[in-house]
């Protein structure tokens, strides 16, 4: 293959037609409450880990909805599981529980 001295830019667009949303369905069955999230960001604001890097629990939940599992797994590793997020969530979402599940995504290989 020829090189022309530049790289094609990878599209950041989320293609929901191609995203794997089956896990979202599975999550909906297994874990209750997480769909109630309205993206208010109070979890991220209080997060023990968020202040010290790019970790953003609110965004992780949103990425889940979009089926961006690889990114979810990459992000979730930064969670320290302290559970402060649970206390501030106005929609009573157990964000910590979600992050624990997402940490496991690292080991799940997807097609």
């Amino acid at each position: 293959m020829k090189s022309f001295g530049f790289q094609k830019i990878v599209d950041r667009q989320i293609d929901l037609d191609k995203a794997d949303l089956s896990l979202v369905q599975a999550l909906a069955r297994e874990l209750t409450g997480w769909q109630r999230c309205i993206g208010c960001g109070s979890c991220s604001a209080t997060c023990t880990a968020a202040g010290m890097g790019s970790f953003n629990p609110r965004k992780v939940q949103m990425l889940v909805r979009m089926g961006q599992w690889d990114q979810v797994a990459q992000e979730a590793v930064h969670c320290q599981l302290c559970g402060k997020c649970r206390l501030v969530c106005p929609r009573d979402v157990d964000t910590r529980q979600l992050m624990l599940e997402f940490k496991k995504l690292q080991t799940i290989s997807r097609p």
Binding site: G5, F6, Q7, K8, I9, V10
Partner: peptide, 14 residues
């Protein structure tokens, strides 16, 4: 800018 041509290419390909 040659380094940016990847943008141009990606758009056409889209």
């Amino acid at each position: 800018v040659q380094a940016n041509r990847g943008y141009s290419l990606a758009h056409s390909q889209k």
